[in-house]
Amino acid sequence: MQRSLIDRVYSGIIGAITGFGLLLLLAPTLVVLIISFTGGVTLKFPPPSWSLRWYVDLLQSQEIVEPALTSLKVATAATILSAVLGGAAALGLARSRLKIARVLDALFMSPMVLPAMAFGLSLLLVFNLLGIRLSAATLVLGHTIICVPFVIRMVGASVQQLDPVLITCSLSLGAGRWYTFRRVTLPLIRRGIVASCFVAFLTSFDNVPVSLFLADARTEVLPIKLWAILEGSLDVRVAAVSGVIVLLTLAGLVCAEIFGGFSRQIGSR
């Protein structure tokens, strides 16, 4: 009798916290989507009326559209660079038994533990000392470094699961190294590459601490622009930007799921 009471209290607490937790996870995203369709001029919730005015306003706001395009370009460049360099490194390290491979693996993962703020500042100091002017290129360089750990981990995990016998077979059947890489290795680690590209892109697109130090006046990126807007006033256009970002991310997630089995990659991490 007493035990079943304790069990019921326990289940009740577990259920209540879970419900609260899941609501907490969902609510903010939902609220942003809802408020982006407000007809009013404030962030009052629930919205007094409905309209698409802030989306229309957004399209006409050059000062937001331009940073958004810059962010897309920077994120694309950083994703490609980190995927190519990081993917190659992950392949090289996974097959190696040398001690230096462990050291390099730790080095490539370390941007993850270093506060991004400290890294951004340190790279800026080096550019200052060497007299290198800030540009879109310096920004891409900084973003590439912080994207690399995701590529190393996710592509590395795919390579670990790859059966080396398949490579040996291909080579002994007379296929060249490049042909083997293209027709055997690459298709087998495709999932890891797609998933890591997705995460790398989001990481770069979302980054503020590194961009704060490394972007020049002409290369304004979206998150910094939004941050600056929100520090000054509570602009409803930010809700519309948020709505666009949420919908595009969901679309991207669906694509990554179809081409790369994204959720399985996350689960196995």
Binding site: L25, A27, P28, T29, V31, V32, I35, L43, F45, L202, F205, D206, V208, P223, L226, W227, L230, L234, V238, A239, V241, S242, I245, V246, T249, L250, L253
Partner: peptide, 16 residues
């Protein structure tokens, strides 16, 4: 939330 931009998530809390 993991996939929505940090600024968006933070903005949501300003609204809430």
């Amino acid at each position: 939330p993991l996939l929505t931009s940090t600024v968006v998530r933070t903005f949501a809390w300003i609204v809430l």
